[in-house]
Every structure is written in C-alpha cells, then in structure tokens.
Write a protein that binds this DNA or RNA. Structure first.
Lengths: 163, 163
DNA sequence: ACAGGCATATGATTTCAATCATATGCAAGC
DNA sequence: GCTTGCATATGATTGAAATCATATGCCTGT
C-alpha cells in the first residue's frame, strides 16, 4: 500500500492486446493499492505524471494501526468509499458509446489535465478519435481551444453527476 | 448502505443515451452503497436477479459501530478493498476492444451466471454481438454449448493428442 | 542551427460492433 | 390449447471509431 505525498500517479494495466488501461489517477494525499493489505500478491503498474513522492506503507503496520485506532480505520473506509465512486465514474465514462459525448463528459469532469494523448487513454479512445471529437466540439461552439492542446468547456456546464 | 442477506442484486446506472451500465453485482453477504456513509445523497439503482433479501443499515449506526469496533471497521475496509478489485476487473473487461476477446474473458471470469442478455449488459456489448461471438467461439472449439443459452469454457487439453 | 522524438492534429480507409430485422423457443397466464 | 412477452439466436446493413497515413509544431540534446 502506498501514500502519495505529492505529485500525480496513474495506475495502469495493459490488456492482452497491448492496450493501456488507465485504472485510477492518484493525486497528493491519496492512498493506493489498498487491496494489497489483504492479499499475498497484488500487481499494478504506476506511472508518475509529475515529479512525485510516494511513501510505501508497511502492510503489517497498517493492519495493526487499523486494529487499534478506529479513526484511522474510519478514514481508510472513507478513502476506499471515495475510490469506489471514482471507479464507478470511470465505468460510466467507458459506457458512453459516442466518442463526442465521452470526450465532453471527460472534459466536464476535468480529466484533461495534461496531454491529449493521456486524456485519450483515460477515456479509452484513440487519440485520433479524441482530436476529431475536440475539433467538432470547438466548431459547434460547445468547447473552446485557447491554445494548441488546450481545451475547455465554453461555459459553466453542470453535467449531471452520478452521485 | 445495504447488506444482502441472500439472492443476487445488480447495481446499475443508465447513460444519457439510455444505455444500461452494470456497475457491481452483489451476492449473498455483500454490502452495497458504502459511499452513502459519507454523502448526503447517493443515487444508485438496484435490480434483483433472484429472490433476494436486503437489509437497510442505518447510516449513523454504522458510523458509530465503526468508531467503536475496530474489527468491524477492518472488515469494512476489506470489503471495500475487494470491491475496488471488482471494479478494476470490470474496467479491464470494458477496455477489451474485440467482442470475441471480451466475451471469452467474461466467460473465464465466470460472469455468465444467468441470461445471455444480462451477460451482454455486464460486458457492455449488444446481445447480438455476444451471441455472434459465442457462436464463433463454439465453432472454433474454444467454448462448448451444452444446451440452449448455456456456454462453458472448453476443457483444457491436458494431454497432447498423439494422432 | 540541426536532428530526433513525441505531441498535436487531420484526412482516408478499414473494421467491426451497433442497429435493424427477423425467426424460433420457452414459460407464464388465461 | 392459445396468446403474449421475452430470451435465444442469426443475418443484413449502417455508422463510427480504429487504424493507417501524413504533416506540423514543440522541446531537448548535441
């Protein structure tokens, strides 16, 4: 189990076909790989998006503290509950069939935080499909493109959130 | 927050385009909707696949017990950690682009537990695509179809044929 | 300044799942 | 037994994202 002091880390997997699957993006203060607390082995790849500092937490120690300090355990429950919500949101995004709708939903979620290439991987789309969707959304006036590689919602839009 | 005494319940959402998204399938002994512990509101639809019994747990009570009983809190952490893994597996499945590969991965995971229609929704594919993939996999000898609507992984060949 | 690598970006073509259409089978209700 | 509704299942067609191809821009290193 890990704690991200600062920076941003993307947890990824690859499908058999070699496709990169973004699982979870951890930002400062997040914990990662909690299921490892209860498993002999747990595999996951992490890619730092920025300069990051990660603390590796001793599994036995975490389990001990959890057993003795209810407020620690409760905060861990809350972290995991929030992660569950994050995963649910990712599932919802991936379920959107139309690239255009998926892109605008991802933009509205604030997921375009770096390169469009990573944004595309985050959305499970090819980068070409994402650029095409972004171009169309710009032409339609639904988003704006202040500069190369920068795209923003064109007005404060409240997309219905899941929870 | 809920506890499923017996039966099977599928938590679902619908996309704006009206597509049904399976989120999580709870079976006997599972808890559901844990993020609700820390939210004012939490929306989710549940569909019972079988005759089920669900206990609704009082939020305040759960938080109190969590704060006083470390073993309860730890078991809740473990439940959520397992849910995180379940969601991760769903993301991996949805990231598989080819219907055929997605179907066989879903079969291998043991996800075909009822109707093929529900299996298709679980995989995020149209039922037609699923049946086509199943047909092809049967023709290719990778799976077997003992009866209408029943599909299973082929027995692994443990001894090379000597013919 | 130049070269190389990668992101940004777009167009053409291909692929394949969705959609549309249809037929059959099964179970429940009357 | 008959009707209805839905699951099972398949074929034809359509649509859109993936893939292939390419050009430009930016940044880093020499």
């Amino acid at each position: 189990m890990f704690f991200l002091e600062y920076g941003a880390v993307n947890l990824i997997r690859h499908t058999d076909a070699g496709q990169k699957v973004s699982m979870f993006r951890a930002v400062s203060g997040d914990t990662m790989a909690e299921p490892a607390l209860f498993s002999e082995t747990y595999h996951c790849d992490a890619v730092a998006e920025d300069s990051s500092s990660v603390l590796c937490l001793d599994k036995g120690l975490v389990l001990d503290v959890m057993a003795q300090d209810p407020s620690f355990a409760t905060s861990l429950v809350q972290r995991l509950a929030m992660q569950v919500q994050t995963y649910r949101r990712r599932l919802e995004l991936l379920a959107i069939r139309s690239a255009e709708d998926r892109v605008i939903a991802g933009l509205a979620d604030g997921r375009l935080t770096g390169s469009v290439m990573n944004f595309a991987a985050d959305l499970g789309l090819s980068h070409e499909a994402v650029y095409r969707a972004l171009s169309k959304l710009v032409r339609d006036g639904r988003i704006v493109r202040p500069a190369r590689g920068i795209y923003e919602m064109s007005e404060p839009v409240s997309v219905p959130r899941s929870e």
